[in-house]
Design a protein around this nucleic acid. Sequence first.
RNA 1: GCCCCAUUCGUCUAGAGGCCUAGGACGUAGCCCUCUCAAGGCUAAAACAGGAGUUCGAAUCUCCUAUGGGGCACCA
Length: 507
Amino acid sequence: MVPHSSMRPVRVRFAPSPTGSLHIGGLRTALFNWLFARHQGGKFILRIEDTDQKRFDPTALTTLTEALRWAGLQWDEGPEVGGEFGPYVQSERLEHYQKWANWLVENEKAYKCFCTPERLKQVNEDKEVRGEPKGYDRNCRNLSAEEAASKEANGESYVIRFKMPLDGKTVVTDAVRGEVSFDNATQQDLVLLKSDGFPTYHLAHVVDDYLMQISHVMRAIEWFPSYPFHVQLWVAFGWEIPIYAHLPIMLNPDGSKMSKRNPPIDKHGNPIPVMVHDYIPNGYLPEAMTNFLANIGWNFGDDREFFTMQEAVERFDLTRINPANSRYPAEKLDWLNGQHIMALSTNELAVRLKPYIERAGLAVKDDLLARVTPLVQERIKRLDKVVEIAGFFFRDEFQPPTAEMLPQKKMSAEQTKSALEQSHRLISELSDFNTQVLHEAMEKLAQELKLSNGQLFGVIRVAVTGQQVSTPLFETLDILGRESALTRIQLALDILSKKSEQVILQP
RNA sequence: GCCCCAUUCGUCUAGAGGCCUAGGACGUAGCCCUCUCAAGGCUAAAACAGGAGUUCGAAUCUCCUAUGGGGCACCA
């Protein structure tokens, strides 16, 4: 049994490597850490694991913090905010790793390995031929002190490898999966410190989690196989081991691994974005995104799937984490996004809608937007869709319908024309011009014209909005105003008559 | 190939030996409401991977098989 810490102040960390924008899988890992920290009244720390010099991307850190802030996952310690255990960027902490790697060597828990990459490759190839498991053959583990010293004096470059126990078992206790036993004989003497003086993940995470007093390590399942190695590292150092919780991962809808190279595809064959930054211009609310992610691999505890982050914080606990991987339930995000849009106050929704309308090249007058917003609130599942359904309110130039769009189901050209003429007359004669008056008068007119409401209202809708699908008609007319309504109806009439002329002219 | 993990409707999930005739949600289909589209309401189809055990009783415990996934770097 391996000792685990308990009763320590809760300190958790999200430790991405800055290789680009944040992946939604990464966002979920961050979210679970954040929820846990908030629930426990602990600290959520952001640490940047940039120890791979080959994959350095200077813009990635900004993109990363932007994505976390967008999602509302503010960190208590880390880049941009500081903290007493800094620096929080691993490339600025090299002295720690070198110090502790050397400590392990001095205490004979690690050794210098002078094997070249070529030899390592050869070893693996030979092993493959013989049908043996791959891995380093521990050639340098038994080098005498003199041999090692002389190689080093010769200027041969080396890495530092951990001396993994050669037999016995390492039993780990994962908070999600329980006890799991590994044979030490199947484990490797992994590299702790690379020849360029940078640590590998294995060393860096243990040293940093120790120095930063991390109480719980919640990380993705791909780390599970190296968990026994990490446990032995903690033991070698003689440090108290934090509680580990390995989170399941999200798979593509078809069950394959989610990655940039293998992007998920929705049921219509369209690619599903995997980067957080792709969701922002698509009109997704951060609260919907986090709500969505919280429902994958974790559940609220009763049958609710729609909840706020505050509610999730109150309920979050490790015992409800499902150990199985899950496929990405893309449709649920749209539903939840719609739910969150409906839950917003009108004012708040208007504020969020504005940039999407402007991005479509339209000018937004705030008073107009305030009146349009309630009309779209329960009709859009994504913020950017406001342009589709209500963009006509904001366009300087009206885009009129074609003549073919005007007649509604089973209406003759004559009926359509008369519907427009009578509506025009009615609207111009109305003493009051508002939603209710319009509604009553138009219903009456439909009866007189022996048209269904759908037919009459549909014709006017198309005439006035230029589209078959729109916000509700009478509210729309009210906002547009009488003048504009009359002008557009007249225009529809003109369009209709032009068409009939053309018909006559045709042989 | 080796090591490890997982497996409940199409998908996300509830389920800790009898409350299971397996519940909820998304999606799908139908109906209702209805000026379009939504929203909302109602209804329907839809699952314990397979096989052996243990037990009076198994979705729940054990084993085997299958399938899926993770890992086997001087990447994280």
